[in-house]
Amino acid sequence: MPSPVLFDYVLRLGDDRLVLGHRLSEWCGHGPILEEDIALANISLDLIGEASLLLKLAGSLESKGRTEDTLAYFRDAIEFRNALLVEFPKGDFGFTIVRQFLFSVYSMLQMDALQKSRNTELAGIAAKALKEARYHVRHSAQWVVTLGAGTDESNARAQKALDDLWRYTGELFCADDIDREVAASGDGVDPSTLESAWRDQVLAVLNRAGLRVPDAGYMQAGGRGGRHTEHLGHMLSEMQILARSHPGASW
């Protein structure tokens, strides 16, 4: 049964994970050490797997015949609904780790709540994604502490990443009409209800790492409405070129 609002909501969930998964995949072959290279690729594959399930569900909720591949490869940047946080280039290892940590705690809380979704398919995807997110938190938190409490240089790089990324965390918890409607129907979760738990968990790790939480200033948003940074278009052109150059190709 078509459900346009739930389609919009699930598209956001899927796009967050597709874009971040692609950003992480850019580390493949470039990790600081073989083991971490594999770990980042693992997390990337977890996220792309979640995105695939979520976009497939979105396609069926839309009921216009779009598959997960159509949604991933044949939409332009303005049609993507991911938060800005996930679309920035991978940066240095510190940037990637801090972003992964900030997102993973959010994803863990979100998926935990979505296990109770009235939509059983979404609840099932959430149960799977929750297990993965718990590991992503454990892995990235361990690295945040290692970098923050490490050398002067690793601390400075992690702190800079945190300072640069903090203003994009507010968007994760901004609730609009779509969020409120799916929360009211029991299908989705109002993201604003996740913020205090997120803050507590993030601050606990940042304190252990000796990293300073940036002052809460202006929070940048736009991704949920399709207003993205220039970076997303460049990323999509690389991610989509094969599927667009050879429509219908299989590999």
Partner: peptide, 20 residues
């Protein structure tokens, strides 16, 4: 075998390399 600087990191690396 894996490379790691701490036991927790070794456990995570082992998980990622050998038990995927």
């Amino acid at each position: 075998s894996v490379h790691a600087t701490t036991a927790e990191q070794a456990l995570q690396n082992a998980r990622d390399v050998y038990s995927r």
